[in-house]
Amino acid sequence: MRIAILSGKGGTGKSTVAANLAFSLSQTMEVTAVDCDVEEPNLHIFFPDGDVAEEEVLTLVPIVDPDLCNLCGECSRFCRYGALVMGLNGPNLNPQMCHSCRGCRLVCPQDAITEKGRGIGKVSISHPLSGLTLITGTLNEGEVMAPPVIKKAKEISNSGQLTILDSSPGIACPVIETLQDADAAILVTESTPFGLHDLELAAEVVKDMGIPSGVVINRSDGRDQLIGTFCKEKSLPVIMTIPFDRKIAQVQNRGDLISRLDPSWSEKFQELYRKTSDLKEAVQ
């Protein structure tokens, strides 16, 4: 089972939920947590222990053989991303603009173009706890192609066991890549108009993709009518409510986990998992 954790808005406590869920479940079963927020991966902060193995993430970029190139310019005319431009001495590549479509290679009449890998990020794998595997995707700073890094991180996790996917905020392509093949999603929100606005966006995405979902209200001050009404309208069950509490905030801010310090929270997160599994069952 693959559970994706997302939120339209950043900072709602998505990683808090992912980390606590991973910790709590690792007490009784094997679980893999994948940090798909590759621009700002944060799960590792909660699980610093264990040796880390790293794999580089490569994307393919063209290389031009100057002996074969006849400067015809077909490649640069084809490239829709402006990544290849004909200079006086042949095509020049701006690798960060290349989407690896290999169109230039296909259109070159001289067969002068081959491809090579270029590093854009890495995937780190560790075993911080006996029941937990942590996989972190990290996009190199200044790079823009997050989806290949997410894809690689997910591929490594693909072993059929319970997997928790911590998504990036928002609703753009990295989130879609994370949600791909997820069995259920947990939408984390907070009970403010900001939280509601962004929950609406996230709800639209999971609905489009047909992924059964439930809502976690974080930092609740008990006045959750706004979110509650929306969830009722959209038939999205609220599967957990975490109250606002300075102590919880402090634990979190220090990089610690409430479920590690307080077993009653560990139980609550296990309950969250059961409710999430039920969402999937209800669909099948």
């Binding site: 621009e39 700002e40 944060n42 700073e141 823009v144 905020p169 928002g170 979190q252 801010n253 220090r254």
Partner: peptide
């Protein structure tokens, strides 16, 4: 601005005279 450090952030910061980074005391 947007959160993150990817293309929307890069697009936002380009051409700015100044940026104000709002952070909070958390390890993340």
């Amino acid at each position: 601005g947007p959160p993150g450090t990817g293309c929307p952030l890069i697009s936002t910061v380009s051409g700015m005279d100044a940026v104000l980074i709002v952070t909070e005391p958390s390890v993340s």
